[in-house]
């Protein structure tokens, strides 16, 4: 079982969490003119990285907070967890 350190509650089992997707994707700026291709890339295109990856997780059966996890997609090793507004 994977153990994830919630920045609010501490180390918990993976079963308490839900995966929330890639945390490196940035939403286009508000009111900025963007092409359909850029919008399509933001909504649909995701990299399938091998190695270190920054992702969102939701402590859905705990404090109900979203946070970021830096995880190795090959080994599942977790390097760091951050609050959503924090940067690596």
């Amino acid at each position: 079982m994977l153990y994830i350190k919630c920045p609010y509650c501490g180390i918990r089992a993976q079963t308490e969490f839900a995966y929330g997707g890639d945390a490196t994707v940035k939403r286009p700026e508000l009111n900025k003119e963007i092409t359909d291709k850029e919008w399509d890339e933001f909504v649909y295109l995701r990299k399938s990285l091998r190695g270190k990856h920054l992702e969102f997780w939701h402590h859905i059966s705990g404090c109900r907070q979203w946070f970021k996890v830096q995880r190795d997609t090959t080994t599942h090793e977790i390097f760091k967890t951050l609050k959503p507004h924090e940067e690596l």
Partner: peptide, 22 residues
Amino acid sequence: SPFDIESLKQNNCTNTIYNGIT
């Protein structure tokens, strides 16, 4: 529950799961 129940002291609380129930 996967939570470390032994770490729970008086007037501690936590959200966790029990057989899949939050």
